[in-house]
Amino acid sequence: MKMKTALISVVLGLLFWFGLNGRLETGVLISGIVVVAIAAAFHVKDAVFGDVKFSPRAFIAFIAWLVVFVGELIKSNIDVMLRVISPKVRINPAIVEVKTKLKTPLGRLALANSITLTPGTLTTDIKGDSLFIHWIDASSTDVEGATKAIVAKFEKQLEVVFG
């Protein structure tokens, strides 16, 4: 668990470092490794990335999640834009409760962020395995209907990646 966290943090940190610097030189590489190692040492005991799975199946699921996510982002943005420019404000908001099957903190974070980033749904609070979501156009206020409409499309892929 700790090895995995350390490995993922160092790789992500180095990618970030080279993105910021924009060039590959010996000095930049050495100072980058030192800085990234210090930064990774601070949070290696929390084992935040310990639940990420490495397998071809997880990679395919991650790509599938990315495709679904970008599609939803564009679709829901257009939907909200149409609501904004329509002459009469058409909204039907509610805070609904949905249940998630994801167990790990990182998986729940990814799910909550995906829900929040698609306009129209906004994660207000998380308590245990239920998420409370402010929904701009609530078509059903019961738990099962809302879960099916909001969570199901992201959960299938995230379950493979984060468990």
Binding site: P93, A94, I95, A138, T141
Partner: peptide
């Protein structure tokens, strides 16, 4: 216009 508030 709010139709429900599960959190409250």
């Amino acid at each position: 216009k709010t139709v429900g508030d599960a959190l409250t």
